[in-house]
Amino acid sequence: MSTAEFESVDVLESEITTPAAAATTELEARNVSVWFGQRKVLEGVNMSFPKNSVTALIGPSGCGKSTFIRTLNRLHELLPGAALAGEILYEGRDIYSRDVDPVHIRLAIGMVFQKPNPFPSMTIRGNVLSGLKLSGMKRSNHDDIVEETLTAAGLWTEVKDRLDRAGGELSGGQQQRLVIARALAVQPHVLLMDEPCSALDPASTLKIEETIRQLSKEVTIIIVTHNMQQAVRVADNTAFFLAAENEPGRVIEQGATTEIFGNPQDERTLDYVNGRFG
């Protein structure tokens, strides 16, 4: 990344609202370490996510960002050999305590994945409403939900005349916005996004970023991204992950996005946000 791009950070800085640091904490990770078998892949992550904030997780591939967000809604435990230590508090309660049903956690903490995964056997409309059926959630006025969530995901105008076509017919960017709409239909309190724009063109990426900014008024968002301008554009807070060779990933630095990009305290962060390694 060139210095020209780095300057754009300063231009944007004035537009970014102050991070909602004083707001209520919705989700909090305390000393979270993660293993696959005997291999430790993540160590001692402490992070708190204020309500209705956007947090970007940045860092090179293989440093445990995706693994970390999968621990936040209990998808991590589905992988073979998965193990974990530490606590993850959602609304003040450990989501890994014995009497917590993971189904409830995943309903409240939704997720959008790197690769768009609309259900192939369902229509666009059916995809949007699928979460309601799968979770057994009762909500009336389905038509309103379809319109609301597709509008929120920035897809409504493009698909409103073909809601009964298969979701798989849409382009990659449209599919990704469709699955965002699908995730929103169950009204999650937190939305995890694992590199949601990595396979999308700039126009689709821009639309999804607008969507993220809009959503952050009601939803707490945690987004993994390799696109540093994207972190600057959408995130209130940023955390930088790094894994040294043969060592588990750690959080090197975290704080307000403006600080991480404008005035990083750690040299490795400075190098990374300037594109000098990783």
Partner: peptide
């Protein structure tokens, strides 16, 4: 709901962490 701040003394000790499968 109360605001939570990180209290370093309340954190579990990193060196004592062992892989667990709470689920």
């Amino acid at each position: 709901m109360t605001t939570q701040t990180l209290d370093p003394t309340a954190l579990p000790n990193l060196a004592e962490q062992r892989p667990q499968r709470p689920w």
